[in-house]
């Protein structure tokens, strides 16, 4: 396997008035070149912090420990400024809300050209031509006119395509997409996903896609990572996960989401309770307070990460369908 990114025992905590908040806890993850990974989990489970911390995009209140290795280089040993050199060409990110990630008072063109000029050292003329090319690439009608517009003058779908154009401008090896289509209509979502899939093919881009949409996961990813309370609780090849989920949490999450392929008028399953307080982690399994299969053992002891022969990993004493 041609390894692009490796996280080992990676943790992130924030200093808060209520104590240390453990947002990401002991994550081990290896991402191969060209792979597309989906990260799922409910709000607050640490998906965004994991992505941002990997890129070195953390506020000063955050403490990151463990290893982040990108293309064999341990980023965790580098200074902030050195990590920044990897932005754009090495790693890039698309955020959930396209409005907040664009500068509202700068024209689209100048925002697009910035990376090209600063990171790739392109002369202005060339950057301009490349920017137009990028806008065509993400199917913005009339790219010359779009270059002169401000973000507020475009629709949500167009703005998200601009954000994608900026993210891919320097052909990054790894793209983090944090809920890139959550704010969009299904029709526009379909267009944006198609575009991302094409780009992955074309420039062999690796993608880490954060989403709560299981349909998007099923259609766009090779492997799924399920996060709960800052930890990876299950990971498997996408097909394997959907056919054979092991974690009670994964199952509960999947069942609580309405699906188009279910008949109408059925009562939805709910996951009762909520995520544990991230400032005081549970001693045992973090899902125990909400798990219908929990025993005293689950509440007292932390379940280890089990890896099966197929590479399916889970963190549970009593996996669905028994252990393998």
């Amino acid at each position: 396997m041609n390894q692009l990114l490796k996280l080992a025992d990676f943790s992130v905590s924030f200093a808060t008035p209520r104590g240390n908040l453990h947002a990401v806890r002991g994550v081990d993850l290896v991402v191969a070149k060209g792979e597309s990974i989906g990260i799922v989990g409910e709000s607050g489970s640490g998906k965004t912090v994991l992505s941002r911390a990997t890129m070195g995009l953390m506020p000063s209140t955050a403490t990151c420990t463990g290893l982040v290795e990108f293309n064999g280089v341990p980023l965790s040993n580098l200074s902030r400024a050195e990590v920044r050199n990897y932005w754009g060409t090495g790693m890039a990110m698309i955020f959930q809300d396209p409005l907040t990630s664009l500068n509202p008072v700068r024209r689209i063109g100048s925002q697009l050209m910035e990376g090209l000029i600063v990171r790739l050292g392109m002369p202005k003329k060339q950057a301009q031509a490349r920017a137009v090319e990028l806008l065509e690439r993400v199917r913005i009608p009339d790219p010359y006119a779009a270059m002169k517009k401000y973000p507020g003058e475009l629709s949500g779908g167009m703005r998200q395509r601009i954000v994608i154009a900026i993210a891919i401008a320097c052909t990054p090896e790894l793209l983090f997409a944090d809920e890139p289509t959550t704010a969009l209509d299904v029709t526009v979502q379909a267009q944006v996903l198609e575009l991302l899939a094409e780009l992955r093919q074309e420039i062999n881009m690796t993608m880490i896609l954060v989403t709560h949409d299981l349909g998007v996961v099923a259609g766009q990813t090779d492997r799924v990572v399920v996060m709960y309370a800052g930890e990876i609780v299950e990971t498997a090849a996408t097909k394997d996960l959907f056919a054979n989920m092991k974690m009670p949490y994964t199952e509960a999450l999947m069942k609580s989401i309405p699906r188009l392929d279910q008949s109408s008028g059925q009562r939805l399953r709910v996951i009762t309770g909520r995520l544990p307080d991230p400032t005081s982690p549970e001693p045992g399994c973090s899902f125990a307070p909400r798990c219908e299969y929990a025993t005293d053992k689950c509440r007292a002891e932390k379940p280890p990460l089990v890896t099966t022969q197929t590479g399916h990993q889970y963190r549970c004493f009593f996996p669905i369908g028994g252990s393998l």
């Binding site: 198609e194 766009q220 188009l260």
Partner: peptide, 16 residues
């Protein structure tokens, strides 16, 4: 356009 949560099902190609 609604993605189906089943990796065995192909992506539908009817597009607006």
């Amino acid at each position: 356009a609604v993605p189906i949560p089943n990796p065995e099902v192909g992506v539908d190609k009817i597009r607006v």
